[in-house]
Design a protein around this nucleic acid. Structure first.
Length: 433
RNA sequence: GCCCCGGUGGUAUAGCCCGGUCUAGUAUGGCGGCCUGUCGAGCCGCAGACCCGGGUUCAAAUCCCGCCGGGGCGCCA
């Protein structure tokens, strides 16, 4: 099978190329057959373009090949661009060669948008579902979001690291872990890079990681997954307010970049990107409880803010906003208490879309205090020996946060199910595809 | 774990409450045909479904139980 190399994306075929020869490649999106004139909509990752084929104006071999063409056949097309008043896009391509490089059967789901398919069914045929233009857009945006996060963090002196995802024990208690067989031993999938990234501040100072995290929780919601991408940063010689500022920069840059690159395309799907302004509002946990109390939702001091509480606060303040100064006991053991009031911690959650998008804190950097914090939570310091060791050799004060990439995307793209923004989601009942 | 809802052609649904009228309707997709400017193309024709198991009944897509799934909440650095 020989065919010429693709020279243009469909979106790059513009009226100004009139008369130029191009090679396009992609899939047959639609065929409108009027007998002696046929229109083929060719789709690739970036969009669609109309191919126009008139009987008599093309070779007999191209004409006969068209007869057997079906939707989603993969084709490579060489042809001449024509600016056009008739074609709605203002441009079309008259093919001189068409290579059918793969045939397609009838699709198991509708990707054209005339019939909405259930998410569950779409995920079962996910690789077919991903052909839908909205999905192509979602994942191009996702790539750009990660790009913007990296740019922001590199720009502030962070370097990207990779920590083990197969670990020996729970990093911090809390969430359930998946057990895996590691030769003769049992190991676990990491729920977070937390301890490693803290350790790395003692050498690499400012680090970040974008990597999967695993939670063996049997939750069944539209915003939880058992495998997700966590964006984690940790910064030496910094506290929680410093890293909140980093987080604000990351969020604003992400929104700004997505708006610049995809704003128009997203608007066609009714998705509006509102760039948040810095600094984000910060309310304390105590203030949050007061407000919720006034709005008729009683939350006991020391309990987490429930989901409907987040939503009430979102209404009250607009988004995004931080909740800061959570009760120390509510947070993980490494969270640093306020010097002025140890019941309260130097901690924060970032709330967007009524969801906890990120959470972080200043960390305890003094070994004795950390051991004390472990004990208070009923954890055995001996099982944290390799972690505690680093605190003997000049552990700097440090702070950091973790952000759920998919939650950010879900809010950014206004999807109501997190699975929409994940290529192959892993949830309680879905292990394939 | 709790609550709610649902399983009908490839997909999405109507019918179910009130059993017989269902030879199961519609849309979209598929297949075949017609048309030289379609762009949600149009027109004609064809094929295609009651999740499974049990129960009630003269009779079950329809009622009951199981099974399976979805949604919401909770749990969750």
């Amino acid at each position: 099978m020989s065919f010429p190399r693709k020279t243009h994306w469909t979106k790059d075929v513009i009226p100004e190329l009139d008369g130029k020869e191009v090679v396009l490649a992609g899939w047959v999106w639609d065929i409108r057959d009027l007998g002696n004139i046929k229109f083929i909509l060719l789709r690739d990752r970036e969009g669609t373009i109309q191919l126009t084929i008139k009987k008599g104006a093309v070779s007999d071999s191209v004409w006969s090949l068209i007869q057997s063409l079906g939707r989603e056949d993969a084709i490579v097309v060489k042809g001449v661009v024509k600016a056009s008043k008739v074609a709605k896009a203002g441009v079309e391509v008259f093919p001189s060669e068409i290579h059918v490089v793969a045939k397609s059967k009838a699709l198991p789901i509708d990707i054209w948008g005339s019939v909405e398919t259930d998410l569950d069914t779409r995920l079962r045929y996910r690789s077919v579902d991903l052909k839908r233009p909205i999905n192509s857009l979602i994942f191009r945006v996702e790539s750009e979001v990660v790009h913007a996060i990296r740019d922001t963090l590199y720009g502030q002196g962070f370097i990207e690291v990779f920590t083990p995802k197969i670990i020996v024990t729970s990093t911090e208690g809390g969430a359930e872990l998946f057990a895996v067989q590691y030769f003769e031993r049992v190991a676990y999938l990491a729920q977070s890079p937390q301890l490693y990234k803290e350790e790395l501040t003692a050498s690499l100072e400012r680090i970040f990681e974008i990597a999967p995290a695993y939670r063996a929780e049997k939750h069944n919601t539209n915003y939880h997954l058992n495998e997700f991408i966590s964006v984690d940063i940790e910064e030496a010689f910094a506290n929680y307010t410093d890293v909140m500022a980093v987080l604000e920069d990351v969020i604003v840059n992400v929104y700004d970049r997505v708006n610049k690159m995809f704003g128009n395309e997203l608007a066609r799907y009714g998705i509006e990107i509102k760039i948040p302004r810095k600094p984000f509002r910060k309310i304390t946990y105590d203030e949050a409880l007061d407000i919720l109390g006034r709005r008729g939702l009683k939350v006991n001091w020391g309990d987490d803010v429930p989901k409907n509480g987040m939503e009430i606060l979102s209404e009250e303040f607009g988004e995004p906003f931080f909740i800061i100064h959570f009760p120390t006991d509510l947070r993980a053991f490494y969270t640093k208490p306020l010097d002025s009031d140890p019941k309260i911690s130097e901690s924060f959650d970032l709330v967007m879309g009524g969801l906890e998008i990120a959470s972080g804190s200043s960390r305890i950097h003094i070994k004795e205090q950390l051991i004390e914090a472990l004990r208070k939570r009923g954890l055995n310091p001996e099982s944290f020996e390799s972690h505690l060791m680093v605190y003997d050799y000049g552990m700097p004060p440090h702070a950091g946060w973790g952000m759920g990439l998919y939650r950010l995307l879900m809010v950014l793209l206004k999807r109501d199910n997190i699975r929409e923004v994940v290529l192959y989601p892993r949830d309680r009942f879905r292990l394939e595809p």
